[in-house]
Design a protein around this nucleic acid. Structure first.
Lengths: 233, 233
DNA sequence: TGCGCCCTTTGACACAGATCAAAGTCGGCC
DNA sequence: GGCCGACTTTGATCTGTGTCAAAGGGCGCA
């Protein structure tokens, strides 16, 4: 909390601009800010490990954070990759349980850590805030369900296509192009999609060979949205 | 709501006994009951399909309900199998989204359907209830994460073992036995564990051959808890 | 300009688990 | 008691994806 004193105003502003806190009064945001600490995370550093107790949640100010599960023998499965404005750890905060994932900074990052008790207090006398919190958790559940669906009913190729089309318009004329910048290294992305780097590489190659996309490093161009969407391996 | 009139008292009693509603006052439970409908679901019937709008959530009074995702060509993936006292659909209720899974009764069942507006009203003036709701969703997220972890970093055999040991004591002397009754047909259970019936059958056979379990229909006896826990394929 | 490091691609091969097909097995119901 | 349909097992084979190994890039840094 000491670090916060350096830029006391900005924390309030940042919090107020988050959808989750947007409708709180100035006083309420002030109370939250008083329970908030700024956290600096250099690339590669861990914010917490599986098993650590959870006494609050994080919001990313800038940078990029990876949440992942660690398996035996150093294998890991990336659960989510998050960027500025996104938060994580709310769910564990409401259970009296330790973290199940670990969090690692993929690039130099800055976060706010908001203490559990301040959130619980806010819920106590602000039902609208409680509803937003509920909607937030529900949204997360929804996303997890989508992942589960993708992992169990779709092939690796289909998951990659799904990722490439994640925020493409629903309908699109034949031949519509789309430029995409992969959010992270291909290795991390592959793990996020539950496939190996090698397999991911081969899938990208296969889609290129089919004339559906062009790949240059992290930059991918979808050459025909409609055709990619209906591609069958 | 008409059907409710047949047994007006019992609904209140049942609701009050659920952990979620246990600390509500009589008046509060009454209001909830007024927004509650009894639903009868014969074995094999659908409660809702993917895409249906969600205007409340369900609690099982008796029977057994399966939540599942439908893939192309009739393939399906069982997400959860629920029994008496368990609820489902809370998450979608808080989002303005349609169901993503469908719900089917595995046996003749009876449920309560609690209207969304009554829940929202309760949250509005009862922060402790809001917290319980949050804890409920967080718990669900936690479970889903466990499934995700199992699906992505464990083998089919390990998932089956995990299921058999789901509520076995943490520590146990060598040679401890455990009697288990499978909750559903092996086909449904296999899908829940994300493997095919055939593969599930073979895994059970393999564990039997290794002298770790004995299988008689739906009745499974673990012959040595400790040894099963540390079994490596 | 070139060295070193990390990320990525490519190839050959192995394997868990799926699929297809057919034979059991069990319990309910007339 | 015996037949039917649903569930389960078993066998043979196929295949998507992982693993292991080695060769390429690309890019910051000296």
């Amino acid at each position: 909390m000491a670090a916060m004193a350096a830029t006391p105003i900005r924390v309030q502003q940042f919090l107020q601009n988050l959808p989750l806190f947007s409708e709180l009064t100035g006083d309420e945001v002030d109370r939250l800010a008083a329970a908030t600490a700024q956290v600096r995370a250099p690339a590669g550093s861990l914010l917490f490990r599986r098993g650590d107790p959870c006494i609050g949640f994080h919001v990313i100010v800038y940078g990029q954070i990876k949440l992942a599960l660690a398996g035996r023998d150093g294998a890991e499965k990336v659960v989510e990759v998050l960027g500025p404005g996104q938060s994580f750890g709310e769910a564990v905060m409401f259970l009296e349980r330790p973290y199940v994932v670990f969090a690692e900074a993929l690039s130099d990052s800055m976060l706010l850590f908001i203490g559990k008790s301040a959130i619980l207090a806010e819920i106590e006398h602000n039902p609208r805030f409680a509803r937003k919190m509920l909607a937030g958790l529900a949204m997360r559940l929804h996303r997890l369900m989508s992942d589960l669906e993708a992992y169990s009913l779709k092939s690796g190729t289909q998951r990659v296509i799904g990722y490439l089309l994640r925020d493409a318009p629903e309908e699109s004329a034949a031949g519509t192009r789309l430029a995409i910048e992969l959010a992270t290294s291909k290795g991390v992305l592959a793990s996020r999609l539950n496939i190996t780097r090698e397999h991911f590489s081969r899938i990208l190659h296969e889609l290129s060979a089919a004339g559906l996309i062009e790949v240059h490093g992290r930059h991918v161009t979808v050459l025909d949205l409609a055709r990619l969407r209906s591609y069958t391996p």
